[in-house]
Design a protein around this nucleic acid. Structure first.
Length: 338
DNA sequence: AAGACGGGGTT
DNA sequence: AACCCAGTCTT
């Protein structure tokens, strides 16, 4: 990894936040861009939030970016830019949980705290043949205690790095490399052929489907955007004016919707084109979005609290959810005249 | 204790 | 389509 052996707590923190629930290959370029743009925690603290969100655009789990920015400001102000040095203080930072606190404490300061992430759960459950569900309170306790017992207290950072690397490159979820494994002789899962069932997870998530009707309201002055501030997905990202519906709509149904009535009082003749349905899977939701293009000769009377008027060439300055980014990327290919 | 929160790669 | 990823926060 590019940051292996990194001792700068700010950079360790930054990389660990980026890598939460994120593969190294996906997070790496983001880490490089953040490190380049914000070399020190004060640089991040001084940045406008929209800029941070834009840099995070496409990485997902956007609360990480909001908490990252919040914590940078907190460290800059309350700690004069000096990263806290005790496990308890690190753990108290917003966006930093047990895993990240242990990672920072051990990598940056050599403190004896064992990391327990997805890799560690996998390695330990297989090696010791533990079938306690890793997403249960009992399982978390059990694995944390075991990890703590196993930790090399002389070199906690190296130990933590090693077990994570081993899980990521050798003891993988599917088709682990058991034939070429140092732990074959002691691995319970190998002995009993349980690699495929360990680790055990008990909860499975169910997805709900949501339908978003996006209105691309364009006038000579620009087009309307909305910042998602409500407690929902994509908080603090931007989007077009949206109406959520129970299903995919026909044109005749769209023009009856409140949002359309409010922003396109001229009626359906203003409708220029409609996109194909775009689809995106989130961790708990399936999103289906349709984009309706509305062309106005004059900007409508819109709610200034809710929407902002943006010129077309400034669109790229805003951070959008992936599904909107995809629409913007190939919109010319999919728009259909009405 | 359970649910919510993104996006992408692998199988 | 299901699973998983260098997890955390809210309810």
């Amino acid at each position: 990894m590019p940051w292996k052996g990194e001792k700068n707590p700010y950079l360790v923190w930054l990389s660990e936040i980026i890598l939460q629930q994120t593969r190294v290959e996906q997070g790496w370029p983001y880490f490089e861009r953040f490190r380049e743009k914000y070399p020190k925690v004060e640089d991040l603290a001084d940045a406008p939030e929209d800029e941070v969100m834009k840099l995070w655009e496409g990485l997902g789990y956007y609360s990480r970016a909001r908490n990252l920015h919040f914590t940078a400001k907190y460290i800059a102000k309350e700690f004069k830019g000096v990263f806290p040095k005790t496990y308890e203080e690190i753990l108290s930072l917003k966006g930093v949980g047990p895993y990240t606190a242990s990672a920072i404490a051990s990598f940056a300061y050599g403190l004896p705290h064992a990391v327990v992430d997805g890799n560690v759960y996998r390695v330990l459950s297989r090696c010791f043949g533990i079938d306690t569900p890793i997403d249960s309170t009992k399982g978390k306790k059990e694995f944390n205690q075991l990890a703590d017992e196993l930790l090399n207290r002389k070199k906690p950072g190296e130990y933590n790095q090693a077990i994570i690397d081993f899980g990521a490159t050798h003891c993988m979820p599917k088709n682990p490399m058991c034939g070429d494994c140092e732990l074959q002789a002691i691995c319970v899962a190998f002995k009993e052929g349980k690699q495929g069932v360990l680790p055990v997870k008990e909860k499975k998530i169910k997805k709900r489907t949501r339908y978003f009707q996006y209105l691309i309201v364009e006038s000579p002055d620009g087009l309307l955007l909305h910042k998602r501030v409500e407690k929902d997905i994509w908080q603090n990202l931007y989007e077009f004016p949206v109406q959520e519906t129970e299903k995919i709509l026909e044109t005749s149904e769209l023009i009856e919707e409140d949002l359309f009535l409010a922003l396109a009082p001229g009626g359906k003749e203003l409708l220029q084109a409609v996109s194909r349905p775009f689809q995106q899977m989130l961790s708990h939701q399936k999103i289906i979005a349709v984009f309706w293009e509305i062309s106005l000769s004059k900007t409508p009377d819109y709610d200034k609290e809710k929407y902002l008027l943006v010129e077309r060439e400034n669109l790229s300055k805003f951070a959008f959810p992936k599904i909107i980014d995809r629409y913007l990327q190939d919109k010319s290919l999919y728009l259909k005249m009405i």
